[in-house]
Amino acid sequence: MTSPGDSGGRETWPLWEVFVRSSRGLSHVHAGSLHAPDEIMAVRNARDLYTRRAEGVSIWVVPASAITASDPDARGTFFESPQGKEYRHATYYTESEAVPHL
C-alpha cells in the first residue's frame, strides 16, 4: 500500500488530514482529508471545504505521512490491558444506579 503522503509527479500536491473542533470545549475530530501544496494552503482549503456551514472553531492540518497508526497485528497485546477490567466503567456499578446525579 502506498503511503498517502508521497507525491509522484512534479505537480501533485501531498495529502493532508484535517481535524476540526466545532466548538469550544470539545476535541478536534477527524473530518477528512484534502490535497494542498503546503501547510498554509492546507489550512485555508480545509476551512473552505469543511467549515462552509459554520462547523468550525479550530482547524488542524497534518501531513498524512506524519501520522503513525497503531499496528492492527498487535491488536491483542496493544489493547489487552483494558479487557477484563470492567470496574473502570460506570455501568459495572449497579447498586448505585438509581442514585441521582451519579
Binding site: 500500500m1 502506498t2 498517502p4 509522484g8 509527479g9 501533485t12 495529502l15 477528512g32 482529508s33 484534502l34 490535497h35 471545504l49 462552509r52
Partner: peptide, 19 residues
C-alpha cells in the same frame, strides 16, 4: 466539488492516488 473531494479522500485510504 466538495463532495468529490470527500470521496476522493475516502478512496485514497484504500491505496490509490488522486492523480
Amino acid at each position: 466539488a466538495g463532495h468529490g473531494l470527500y470521496l476522493y479522500s475516502a478512496a485514497q485510504t484504500l491505496g490509490i492516488e488522486r492523480e
